[in-house]
Design a protein around this nucleic acid. Structure first.
Length: 805
DNA sequence: CAGTGAGCGAGCTTCCGCTTGACTT
C-alpha cells in the first residue's frame, strides 16, 4: 500500500482566545492575522479580537435607505457576521476598556463606529486608537495616545456608502427593463467597462500608417583590431517608397564618416515598493498571474506571516523595514549599494492606512512554500530591497555618422552600465515593449574617421494599434483615475466578466506584407517580406452586451460614466470629513439631480437591442440586420412587420454586432448544412450553443476549433466521428465494487474515478488501471471537498438560502 | 448539452468596500 493521505493543516484564524480568565482590555482590529501578531506584543492584560472587516451594511433587501426620513440608513448585521458580533459582544462584557483599533481611514473609522453602535459600547471606557505599522513601539505608542471616534470621517463613509447604493440600485433596474434582466451598473464597474469598450473601438478604427526606417551596418574594429559591426539608424524616416529608394541610391556613392561622438551619463532609479495595484501588474508581467491569483497567493503569504498586509495603496515602509533592508544590502553588496528612500504616494484618493507590501523579515530571502508563493515572495523581497538601493549609473553614447551628399545622419546608440546599483537585484518590467535596439557596447572610434558600409536597408514599418487592456493594465488605469480601492480591484474585474460585459481572450496574429529594400555590394534589391503582427494574449474584449449597456448608460447618465465622477465625489466626501458640510445634504444634492433622470429614462427611453442594419439579402431582397436577442447576438433576414416571418441565425463566438459585415452575416445562414452520408445516415454541420458540431444518427460530435464548419468535408466529418468513438471506447478503465458503483475513467485531464456522480482525483503516483475498490474508498475519504464547486475570487454570490428549494 | 428569437405572467436580479470562511442532508 503506497497510498499516503495528505492531511492539510488548516491555519486556524478563529476568534476565541485561548485564555480562561477575562482580560481587562479588549482590543478589536479588522484582520485575525493582525490580531494574532498584536496579542504577542501586548501581554496578558490585553485580549485581541478581530471584527473581520465591516460587521454591518445597508439592508440587502430593497435599497436600505429611508428617503422620507432624511436618508436614514437601515443598517443590518450581515448574516456571516452574526457569530462574530455575538462573540465580540460577549467579550466586551468582561472588559474594563475597549480599544477600537481598526484602520485609520474612512472605512476603518466607520468600522469602529459600527462596532461602537452595534455592541452598545459606552463613551467612558471606549478608546479609538490607530497604528500604521505592526511593531511593538507603534502599538504601545498608540495605546498611549487614544482619541474619540471621528464622526465626520464616519459621515464621509456613510455618504460614500449611500451614493454607491443609490447609483447601483437605481441604475441596475433600468438596465433590467431596457436591456436584459440581472444586469448591473455601478460607479466603478461601469467606468471599467467603458474603458474597455472605448479601447476596442479605437483598435477597430485604427489604420496603420507606414514609413521607411533605414538602418546601416558599418565595418569597424574593436580595441584589439577584431572585426566589429556597428549598427546605426537614420534619424529621419521616409513615408514614400521612392524617397527611400532615392536615399539608397545616394548611399551607393556616398562617403561615410564619424561626425561626432556624444557621451552622456544617465541614471536609473528603483521603483517604489509594492502596492496592491503595482504588485498585480508586476506579477502579471513577470509571473503571468491573473489579478485574482496574485491576491489569493498574497493572502496566503500574509496569513503565514511572510509579508505585510496585501491590500494597500501606500508605498511607505516602516523605519524598521528600511533599517533591516540596509543591513541586508550591506551584507549582500556593500555599503555603496545602499541608498535608503522614503517614497510618497501620488495616487488620487489614496488613504494609506497600511504600509507598502513587503516581507515581514527582510533577512528572509526566500521561503519554503508552493512554487507560486515562493515566486511571489521573491518578487516582493527583490522589489523592497531594490527600493532601498543606490541608483544605477549608465553612460549613453551616441555616434553620429555623416553621409556625403545628404544632410541626414546615421546614429548608433549604446548604453553601458557604469555602476549597477539596484539593477543588481531588480528591474521593473514594462508592458508592450516596442522595438528595442542598439544596446550594449560600441566600438572605439575617432571623430572624422571614415567608415565603410557593409549593408544598408530600408524597411517598411507600421504604426502600432493601441494595446487592449489586460486585467493588470486595467487596474493601473482605474487606479490612475482614482476609481476603486485595493480591496476591490480583483472583485471588480470578476464582476464585469461575470456579467458578460467583458471577456478575457486571445487573438491570433495577422500576417502583413512589407517592403524590404536592401543595398549591398552597390546593388539594390527590392523584396516583399511578411511578418506576424498584433497577436493578443489574455486581454479584455467587450461583448456586444457590454457595448450596448455602455452606450445606453453613456447616453442617459453621462455624469456617472464620466472618468472624473469618482474624483469629484471624493472631494465632496473630503468636505464632509472636514466637517464643512453635512453628509445628508451632500447626498440630497446628488439624489435630487440623479433620481429624476432615472425616472425619465424609465419612461422615455426605447428598449435597447443594439440593432445595426447591414443591407439586403441578395437572394430575397429582404433587409439583413444584427441585434441582441434573448439568447445572445443574432442576424436576421426580414423584419417582424413583414408578413413572411424573419429568418434567424446566431452570431459566432468571435463575431460582434459592431463589426460584422454583410458578407459574414450571409455566411451564417448557410448552416445547418448537409455534408453527405455515413453508414447510410446523413451528416449535418451546424453551430449550437456550445459551438460547431456534426450531427449524425442522433449523436453530436463537436468540431475542434481548428475546423471551419463551412469548410468541413465528408471525409473529415467521418474522421471526427471515428475519433470520438475511439475515445469513448477507451474511456472506461475499470469498474469496481459489487454493483459497479465506482468507475475508473479516462478524462480530459487524465484518469479519474467517479462514485455517486462525484468525481475524484487519482494521485500521480498511482497507476489508474491497478486501483482497487479499497484504495478508491480511501481516496474518497481523503477528498472531502470533491464535488464542491471551487469558489473563485468573486463578489458574494446571490444569497442562495433565500431561494431554497 | 447542441431546436429557440415571444410577452396570461410570479418573483427575482443589482452597488462598493472592509475582512475571511463554509450550517449539514
Amino acid at each position: 500500500m503506497y497510498l499516503s493521505i495528505f492531511v492539510i493543516l488548516q491555519k486556524k484564524l478563529e476568534n476565541t482566545p485561548n485564555k480562561t480568565s477575562m482580560s481587562k482590555n479588549l482590543v478589536i482590529v479588522e484582520s485575525p492575522a493582525k490580531a494574532k501578531t498584536i496579542e504577542k506584543f501586548l501581554g496578558s492584560d490585553y485580549q485581541v479580537m478581530s471584527s473581520f472587516g465591516h460587521i454591518r451594511d445597508l439592508a440587502e433587501k430593497g435599497i436600505g435607505i429611508d428617503f422620507a426620513n432624511n436618508y436614514k440608513p437601515e443598517y443590518v448585521v450581515s448574516t456571516d457576521k452574526k457569530k462574530v458580533v455575538a462573540e465580540l459582544k460577549k467579550a466586551t462584557k468582561g472588559a474594563e476598556v475597549i480599544w477600537l483599533a481598526s484602520d485609520e481611514d474612512r472605512e476603518g473609522e466607520a468600522i469602529a463606529w459600527h462596532l461602537y453602535d452595534e455592541l452598545k459600547l459606552k463613551d467612558d471606557n471606549t478608546k479609538r486608537i490607530v497604528f500604521h505599522e505592526i511593531t511593538k513601539d507603534a502599538i504601545l505608542n498608540a495605546i498611549q495616545n487614544p482619541r474619540k471616534i471621528d464622526l465626520n470621517l464616519v459621515d464621509a463613509q456613510q455618504a460614500r456608502r449611500l451614493l454607491d447604493r443609490i447609483v447601483g440600485f437605481e441604475l441596475s433596474p433600468v438596465l433590467w427593463r431596457k436591456i436584459k434582466p440581472s444586469l448591473s451598473a455601478g460607479r466603478v464597474q461601469s467606468v471599467a467597462v467603458r474603458l474597455i469598450v472605448e479601447r476596442e473601438r479605437e483598435v477597430n478604427k485604427f489604420e496603420a500608417e507606414s514609413a521607411y526606417k533605414l538602418s546601416a551596418l558599418f565595418n569597424t574594429t574593436d580595441i584589439n583590431g577584431k572585426a566589429l559591426v556597428l549598427k546605426a539608424a537614420l534619424q529621419q524616416r521616409f513615408t514614400e517608397k521612392k524617397d527611400a529608394l532615392a536615399f539608397l541610391e545616394l548611399c551607393k556613392k556616398a562617403q561615410f564618416s564619424v561626425a561626432d561622438i556624444v557621451k552622456k551619463p544617465t541614471k536609473k532609479s528603483p521603483a517604489p515598493p509594492f502596492t496592491t495595484s503595482t504588485l498585480q501588474q508586476e506579477a502579471a508581467r513577470k509571473l503571468g498571474f491573473s489579478v485574482a491569483q496574485t491576491m489569493i497567493v498574497a493572502q496566503r503569504l500574509y496569513e503565514a506571516g511572510n509579508i505585510t498586509y496585501m491590500r494597500t495603496d501606500s508605498v511607505n515602509l516602516s523605519s524598521l523595514a528600511i533599517g533591516n533592508s540596509k543591513t541586508e544590502i550591506i551584507a549582500m553588496a556593500g555599503e555603496k549599494y545602499v541608498h535608503t528612500r522614503q517614497f510618497s504616494t501620488n495616487t488620487k484618493g489614496a488613504q494609506e492606512a497600511h504600509e507598502a507590501i513587503r516581507p515581514t523579515y527582510m533577512n528572509v530571502h526566500t521561503i519554503e512554500a508552493t512554487s507560486q508563493e515562493k515566486k511571489l515572495y521573491e518578487l516582493i523581497w527583490k522589489r523592497t530591497i531594490a527600493s532601498q538601493m543606490a541608483d544605477a549609473e549608465l553612460e549613453k553614447t551616441q555616434i553620429f555618422i555623416s553621409i556625403s551628399g545628404s544632410k541626414n545622419q546615421f546614429v548608433a546608440t549604446g548604453e553601458v552600465i557604469v555602476f549597477d546599483g539596484f539593477l543588481k537585484v531588480y528591474l521593473e518590467s514594462i508592458d508592450d515593449e516596442g522595438d528595442t535596439e542598439n544596446e550594449g557596447l560600441l566600438p572605439v572610434l575617432k571623430k572624422n574617421e571614415p567608415l565603410e558600409y557593409s549593408e544598408i536597408d530600408a524597411q517598411e514599418r507600421f504604426t502600432q494599434k493601441p494595446p487592449r487592456y489586460s486585467e493588470a493594465s486595467l487596474v493601473r488605469r482605474l487606479e490612475e483615475l482614482g476609481i476603486g480601492r485595493p480591496s476591490t480591484y480583483a472583485p471588480t474585474i470578476s464582476t464585469i466578466q461575470n456579467r458578460k460585459y467583458v471577456e478575457k481572450g486571445d487573438r491570433p496574429a495577422d500576417k502583413r506584407d512589407f517592403n524590404f529594400i536592401k543595398l549591398k555590394h552597390d546593388k539594390i534589391t527590392d523584396t516583399i517580406k511578411s511578418e506576424n503582427t498584433g497577436a493578443e494574449k489574455s486581454k479584455l474584449f467587450p461583448t456586444d452586451i457590454g457595448g450596448v449597456v455602455n452606450d445606453f448608460l453613456l447616453d442617459y447618465f453621462p455624469d456617472i460614466l464620466n472618468f472624473n465622477f469618482t474624483a469629484d465625489v471624493e472631494k465632496e466626501f473630503d468636505n464632509i470629513a472636514e466637517g464643512k458640510i453635512e453628509w445628508t445634504k451632500a447626498i440630497d444634492k446628488f439624489y435630487k439631480k440623479f433620481h429624476p433622470i432615472v425616472e425619465d429614462t424609465l419612461k422615455n427611453s426605447e428598449r435597447q437591442v443594439g440593432e445595426r442594419i447591414l443591407g439586403n439579402d441578395p437572394a430575397t431582397g429582404r433587409q439583413l440586420s444584427v441585434k441582441i436577442g434573448k439568447f445572445g447576438p443574432l442576424a436576421q433576414i426580414g423584419t417582424s412587420e413583414e408578413e413572411e416571418k424573419p429568418v434567424f441565425a446566431s452570431l459566432q463566438r468571435n463575431q460582434s454586432i459592431e463589426s460584422i459585415t454583410l458578407e459574414e452575416a450571409l455566411e451564417l445562414f448557410k448552416l445547418p448544412r448537409q455534408i453527405g452520408d455515413f453508414e447510410d445516415k446523413v451528416m449535418t454541420v451546424a453551430v449550437g450553443r456550445f459551438g460547431p458540431y456534426i450531427r449524425h444518427d442522433g449523436s453530436f460530435y463537436s468540431l475542434p476549433s481548428t475546423d471551419d464548419p463551412m469548410q468541413v468535408t465528408n471525409e473529415r466529418a467521418i474522421e471526427i466521428i471515428e475519433t470520438k468513438r475511439e475515445l469513448e471506447k477507451n474511456r472506461l478503465i475499470s469498474s469496481l465494487g459489487e454493483n459497479n458503483e465506482i468507475q475508473v475513467l479516462n478524462g480530459r485531464f487524465g484518469p479519474y474515478f467517479t462514485c455517486n456522480k462525484i468525481n475524484y482525483k487519482i494521485p500521480k503516483t498511482v497507476e489508474a488501471a491497478s486501483l482497487t475498490f479499497e484504495q478508491c474508498q480511501e481516496l474518497i475519504a481523503a477528498q472531502p471537498d470533491a464535488g464542491v464547486k471551487k469558489k473563485g475570487f468573486t463578489r458574494k454570490a446571490p444569497s442562495s438560502n433565500k431561494t431554497k428549494k
